[in-house]
Design a protein around this nucleic acid. Structure first.
Lengths: 348, 348
DNA sequence: TTGAAAGCGCTAACAA
DNA sequence: TTGTTAGCGCTTTCAA
């Protein structure tokens, strides 16, 4: 407790709109207008208000504003984890887009758990967010009901509209992964294994596997069940999965990974076993994060439009919130990044 | 105004505390008490309120709550960037700690720019955060004045108390970096270069360089000015800096890097030049993020207690906010991680 | 243990 | 263009 017993006492109370109004010689309504829609106020008045605001160091009280306007100028985003740079970057772009509109972003993580995600949705709604950004379209109906009950606009990133009736801003995971598989097949590989992320509750991972499998089937390549593996998105898990695949009988000559982190792990696994990449084994990733070119050999992967998704999400959501009209879904292109970790099948 | 004229009409209005009170047959004050300090209410009453809350699907209105209680249950954190895993993880831990207390975390980024950081502080304060978490202690006095004017509790991560009068939860950057330099010297290196992050406005980077320089001076190792370089914390910049160092005359046999990202970049630079690590060149990092062991050879580095800092920050801040008593600074230990990228000086 | 009632600071309809 | 005024939904005295 600072006691402020001396004469130059500052009240611990912050200046309110009323203080500003009094000092500027106008009504609180005018101050409010002057701040929120300056065009609706005479220029001289605006300046008087501005001066008063500056003199008092006035900042609108958030609670009061939210209560009266029924708007918080807050958008919430729930991503699986901040520890994957791909989400971090999308969030960064989203935040920048929102900041330009004076909207604050609330970021929460689900750790790939639907239950946690639902909790986070609840929390965000309780905080009165004006809009929500989610990753992927697969989640319990109850989560969508929560959102619908509140009537809060929300967009889904990372998925394509085929999987959902909601507004999506993403890309076609299946065809992007299929593109990778196609390259691998073109390189002559026939013993092709997959290390996917956990597919349960993850439509992106599912779509990627489906895309790969479709290409292999189409090419008449038999898919050994033991070749279709999945594990959490971590370096260690990727390494372990690769080691399992590479020490089994009939070891693969190519491993298609669900993302770059898994691929980097697989690369490490191959090194531990003394298997040369790409000489004896090709490895591909997905996402094209910095890690993909930090490792050696650099990973062939798929460039995902993370920043564009984040920025577009901000735009769409704000338009929806402000204009009240649900926007169209957007599907963005991906790009295959051909790098050294993918090579021709060597004659044996 | 939705009129509710027909029986199956849902009003768009959400249930308020008044609706709950009516249904439970109590006053709004009792509902509030029942929700916020259940101990001050008879058990039977509590249950009645709980039932009403559930039946109506009531959620307290954030604005109303904030306005009346003058508390937002929100804490803000400003980190340089989300794209470095080290901050992402600290934030994750902070978030978890806060969530356990029903406090929401607002994350903003400064991109290592003091001006942007000050803007973000302003934004957070305008949103009425109850506390703030900052990284590092060096910033313009105006930023601290902003915080002080509002009387908002704040803690500083990543720094040690020596640098600042504020509450810090961090580690001794200088001595941690000195530890690295000592190892490098012990390995027999004398031509030791440094790739630091930009030291301007960054007390952690400054302290690390200072720690290194002190050790070298103490060991009587001359410090060639061209050996003391700095660049932004990115893979590409680290690579470029390393290439510059390694193609100059009198090339170093060891490069001490300001963080793991720079070290990974330097490693890539060495590979491009065909310089063997650690055979011809040793490289060290700082942070011990996953990247450190994803590259080859794995990076000798310093393990920084990111999660513990994040968690401790949440604890301290909440104690401060709730009890009103400024907590003590905390200094956590770091650990040198000896890995292959650091090796003995080879006889030439 | 509970209720009545006075705001918290702001916005927005309406009037002037 | 500006002012008056009625709330927005909640918490918190103060009384009962």
């Amino acid at each position: 407790m600072t006691e402020d017993s001396n004469p130059i006492t500052y009240s611990r109370r912050f200046p309110t709109i009323e203080d500003v109004a009094r000092l500027a010689g106008v009504s609180t309504a005018t101050v409010s207008r002057s701040l929120n829609s300056p065009a609706r106020v005479r220029e001289a008045t605006r300046q008087a208000v501005e001066a008063a605001v500056k003199e008092l160091g006035y900042t609108p009280n958030f609670g009061g504003q939210a209560l009266a306007s029924n708007r918080t100028n807050t958008v919430g985003a729930i991503i699986p984890t901040m520890e994957n740079a791909i989400f971090a970057r999308a969030i960064q772009a989203l935040q920048e887009t929102l900041a330009a509109r004076n909207v604050t972003l609330l970021v929460a993580t689900s750790q790939y758990s639907p239950a946690r995600e639902e909790d986070q949705i609840r929390t965000l709604l309780a905080r009165g967010v004006d809009g929500v950004v989610l990753i992927g379209s697969e989640r319990p109906a109850s989560a969508y009901e929560l959102l619908d009950a509140r009537g809060v606009p929300f967009v889904i990133l990372w998925s394509a509209p085929a999987n959902t009736p909601h507004v999506t801003i993403g890309f076609d995971n299946a065809s992007a992964a299929a593109g990778v598989a196609l390259r691998v097949v073109e390189m002559g590989h026939r013993r092709i294994a997959v290390i996917s992320g956990i597919t349960r509750d993850n439509d992106r991972a599912q779509a990627r596997v489906a895309g790969i499998v479709a290409v292999l089937e189409n090419a008449g390549i038999p898919i050994h069940p033991a070749y279709l593996t999945e594990c959490p998105y971590s370096l260690n898990d990727g390494e372990a999965a690769a080691i399992r695949l590479l020490t089994g009988t009939d070891r693969p000559t190519a491993i298609i990974c669900g993302n770059d982190v898994l691929a980097a792990g697989a690369l490490r696994g191959a090194r531990i076993l003394g298997i040369d990449v790409p000489g004896e084994l090709s490895i591909t990733g997905f996402d094209d994060i910095e890690l993909a070119t930090a490792v050696y050999p650099p990973l062939a992967t798929v460039r995902v439009p993370h920043r564009r998704m984040g920025a577009a999400a901000g735009d769409c959501l704000m338009r929806w919130i402000v204009e009240g009209k649900r926007p169209e879904s957007i599907t963005l292109p991906t790009e295959f990044m051909d790098r050294e970790s993918l090579g021709k099948l060597r004659n044996t």
